[in-house]
Design a protein around this nucleic acid. Structure first.
Ligand SMILES: Nc1ccn([C@H]2C[C@H](O)[C@@H](COP(=O)(O)OP(=O)(O)OP(=O)(O)O)O2)c(=O)n1
Length: 832
DNA sequence: CCTAATGCCTAG
DNA sequence: TGAGCTAGGCATTAGG
């Protein structure tokens, strides 16, 4: 940034004495108009950020990555943690994947992986033998080549349809390989719309009905699935197997850029030594704009006046760069590089150069996706800074903000903007917190308060312009806040362990990191399902839209409403739906219909089961379902997270681990959910409705077993009564008055009922409520006990206190009333 | 004044 | 592969 140097140097030399003089106090003592609070903020910030060595921020802040040093591609391997991936051609080769990553020593890598061809399948006509397929193959090759001029080959192979068990009978499929993945969609639609010319020997009398295709999936995912690459895992290119690109061949700004064939690429499973993380460089930034009175800043009018940046290496607690790019002059901030600019254009360009030098792997911030990124881009466009929007790792690849939207039943419609930074991961803490945490407010201020226990004391937006138009010191004040806003996302990310948790999810489900924020549950499931299907040579049909059809869900036991002054034990099935799917081997691949049962001569209860819903599935003895294998992996990861949770003592870390455990639980439950998603791509209502029907049967049976066993007639002190239950839980009043007795009985009852079910179904004794206030279905409160000494917490479900559609007063009133009732046991007092 | 449909949010 | 699922409470509103 040569343009920036003069003002910047001036600022530093002018005020060096101040830095040396009393860094801690900064300017506070000599600037009476500055608030006490601001100095506190600064002091805290300085503590948080820590000291750089010495005081000369300019000299000590090394922007560039460590140099690569000598590298001998004939002797040394390239080994990196993959962080981003994209489809991209290389030279004449239309099919290549670009993998971006970071080595253990922190160097950036881009690897072109070539030679992998995209494909899809179609089924040969029913009854075709291999001999019949020969001429059909030739026919297809010519016909398809006319429609889609990228057919590489048509190959006849034995495969099996994912849906339905047909006695392990494989049948003939044609694998159509293309030379350019961009055409796969066109190929698919050519086949599926079934233009008349595709009609082979009049086999399809109805020329409207097209040919069903199988295994159609995006090229990048296909590549990752077939090569066994999971998102955020380690990739190795052995010496001699890759070629380093010469300068003129390079497409990226990465320190290492190489090319290799996909067959030589090693994708390490993310376990053992490959569970490590690379020292990713993380840039956290924030911008301030000078808006006008009462108007939200508009990029065509309102300038960007400051950009604060904080750069940290993953695994280190303190940032190694922090700076503020300022329009106009700005007094110094302790241990912070201030870069001053007279012209906004220069500032923007200098920031872009900074970005390129720092070469961050991860860019984070608060609402950067919908504000900072688009604003910077629009502003630069307005100022005609044509060289500005290049933030990617791919040379000549412009950064643009695109409209994107996400809509689903559960999340509703969400409009967002997507800005490409190819090769760098983005993590918008706002999006992340909105996704993972239910809060009343999502301002940076309240989120920081929630997780970091800190108010940020906003500079009111009307003040921004005023401060900017003031003196170097008022602009410094603004810069301090801007810096703080840049640093908070970094601290939130550390505190919430976002990178670790999301990395685990990417590794378990196999999808690229950025999918976790931009996509839903379906893609994760599909990634896992395709991997399993590939192992077993199963092909997955591209289901046409099914008619929307609802199915019955879970039972909620009619509550015996009231206030209970005796301990109420809660028994809960662990991961109910996933365990049902596992226990009964429910899967696409085990689904049977009457025909196949007859044809294969299967014996009921031995070879297959009939679910309470009337659907039929073969037993694990005949064939083990894919779903139960997928669930094993998800639940295994969840179990490990829960184990860590149990041994962790820090309460905040516990909460974070709990969040991780919950995310894995939702992914497991979504396996069930997707089978019931008729708008999705892999619906299978027999699985979904059988799962819920088993669930309904199980909660009934649990209730009956408990009430039948714990009776006076059987020598217990009271007749037990199930007063409530929802989906997978029962609340039992054993009648005993002592916590200890209730816990003992609960423990015993859980084991007793578990023994009546198939593995891995397990009923667990989880907690005792004492006392317990049961208001209605899905509405109750109680003191939550897991030990006899002290209650863990007051637990409130569904009541106004936990709902966000109420005013705070109502919540506080209800909260105090509940406190009175439950803790003080003062029912009369609560009535007032 | 009553009921049914709808929206929102939560339980599981 | 665009998008996990159902049950259910409670406030509001449309319609008679
Ligand atoms: N987001 C959710 C939560 C639950 N369920 C369904 C499937 C679960 O198996 C069942 C019971 O839900 P719980 O909340 O009790 O959770 P689990 O039983 O799955 O897990 P835990 O082991 O924590 O009890 O409800 C679901 O489909 N989606």
């Amino acid at each position: 940034m040569p343009e920036a140097i003069p003002p910047h140097k001036r600022a530093l030399t002018d005020t060096t004495n101040n830095i040396r003089g009393d860094a801690r106090k900064g300017f506070g003592s000599t600037q009476p108009q500055k608030s006490q609070f601001e100095e506190e903020v600064l002091e805290k910030l300085t503590q948080d950020i820590g000291d750089l060595k010495g005081n000369n921020a300019e000299k000590d802040q090394q922007w560039e990555r460590p140099p690569l040093g000598d590298f001998d591609p004939t002797k040394e391997n390239i080994c990196f943690q993959q962080i981003d991936a994209e489809e991209g051609r290389f030279g004449a080769d239309k099919m290549a994947v670009r993998l971006f990553g970071v080595t253990e020593l922190g160097q950036s890598v881009m690897l072109h992986v070539t030679g992998f061809q995209h494909y899809l399948y179609i089924a040969a006509p029913v009854g075709f033998t291999k001999e019949d397929c020969g001429p059909y193959r030739a026919f297809l090759e010519t016909k398809l080549a006319q429609m889609v001029p990228v057919i590489q080959s048509v190959e006849v192979t034995l495969r099996e349809n994912l849906y339905g068990f047909q006695g392990n009978q494989k049948s003939w499929y044609l694998k159509i390989t293309v030379t350019d993945p961009k055409f796969i969609a066109r190929l698919r639609s050519a086949l599926e719309t079934g233009s008349g010319s595709m009609n082979y020997k009049g086999l399809w009398s109805n020329s409207d009905s097209g040919i069903l295709t199988f295994d159609s999936i995006q090229y990048l995912l296909r590549f990752m699935i077939d090569t066994g690459l999971h998102g955020m895992s380690w990739v190795e290119a052995k010496a001699g197997k890759f070629r380093l690109l010469s300068d003129h061949e390079r497409q990226s700004n990465c320190q290492v850029e190489a090319i290799m064939d996909y067959r030589d690429m090693i994708a390490h499973a993310p376990n053992g030594e490959w569970a490590k993380m690379a020292p990713l460089r993380i840039l956290s930034f924030d911008i301030e704009c000078a808006g006008r009175q009462g108007i939200f800043p508009e990029p065509n009018v309102d300038p960007v006046i400051q950009i604060a940046n904080v750069v940290t290496r993953y695994g280190e607690s303190k940032p190694f760069i922090r700076n503020v790019f300022c329009l106009d002059t700005c007094s110094l901030i302790v241990n912070t590089q201030i870069l001053e600019f007279e012209k906004e254009e220069r500032m923007l360009m200098a920031w872009r150069d900074f970005l390129e030098k720092v070469d961050p792997d991860v860019i984070i911030g608060y609402n950067i996706a919908n504000f900072d990124f688009p604003y910077l881009l629009d502003r630069a466009k307005h100022l005609k800074c044509t060289q500005f929007p290049y933030w990617t790792r791919v040379r000549n690849c412009r950064t643009e903000a695109k409209e994107a939207s996400f809509s689903s039943k559960q999340m509703g419609n969400r409009e967002t903007k997507a800005t490409n930074t190819n090769g760098r991961i983005q993590l918008d803490l706002l999006q992340l917190v909105q996704r993972d945490h239910q809060l009343r407010s999502y301002t940076l201020n309240s989120v920081s308060y929630e997780f970091l226990g800190e108010q940020k004391e906003d500079v009111h937006h009307t003040m921004i312009t005023e401060l900017f138009n003031g003196t170097p010191d008022s602009r410094r004040r603004l810069a301090v806040y801007c810096l703080k806003d840049a640093y908070l996302p970094q601290r939130l990310m550390d505190k919430l362990m976002c990178l670790v948790n999301y990395t685990e999810m990417a590794r378990v489900t196999g999808v690229p990191f950025n999918y976790l924020l931009s996509r839903g549950q379906q893609v994760k499931f599909i990634s896992q399902l395709f991997r399993k299907a590939l192992e077993q040579q199963l092909v997955i049909p591209n289901s046409k839209s099914q008619d929307e059809q609802d199915y019955e869900g879970a039972t909620v036991i009619e509550p015996k409403r009231g206030y209970y002054g005796v301990p109420i034990a809660t028994l809960d099935f662990a991961s109910l739906y996933p365990s049902i799917i596992q226990a009964h081997n429910l899967c696409y691949t085990t689904l049977l219909n009457k025909n196949s049962v007859e044809k294969l001569g299967l014996k009921k209860d031995e070879d297959y089961i009939v679910t309470p819903n009337g659907d039929m599935f073969c037993t694990a003895k005949v064939r083990k379902g894919l779903l139960s294998q997928i669930l094993e992996e998800l639940l295994g990861a969840r179990k490990r997270a829960k184990k860590e949770l149990a041994s962790e003592t820090d309460p905040f870390k516990k909460a974070v681990l709990n969040g991780r455990q919950l995310a894995l639980k939702i992914s497991a439950n979504s396996v069930y959910g997707l089978t019931g998603a008729t708008v999705g791509k892999l619906p299978c209502l027999p699985i979904a409705s059988s799962t819920t029907s088993y669930g309904r049967q199980m909660i009934e049976k649990t209730k009956a077993e408990v009430e039948a066993r714990y009776t006076i007639a059987n020598g217990y002190s009271h007749d037990a009564q199930v007063i409530y239950g929802d989906t997978d839980s029962v609340m039992v009043k054993f009648g005993v008055t002592e916590l200890e007795d209730a816990m003992k009985l609960g423990e015993e009852a859980a084991d007793y009922v578990s023994s009546k079910f198939i593995k891995p179904i397990k009923l667990e004794f989880e907690k005792v409520y004492f006392p317990y206030l049961l208001i209605n279905k899905k509405r109750y409160a109680g003191l939550y006990w897991t030990n006899t000494k002290k209650h863990d917490k007051m637990d409130t479900k569904g009541i106004e206190t936990v709902r966000r559609d109420n005013c705070l007063l109502v919540q506080n009133v209800i909260e105090t009333v509940l406190n009175k009732i439950l803790i003080d046991r003062d029912i009369d007092g609560a009535q007032e």
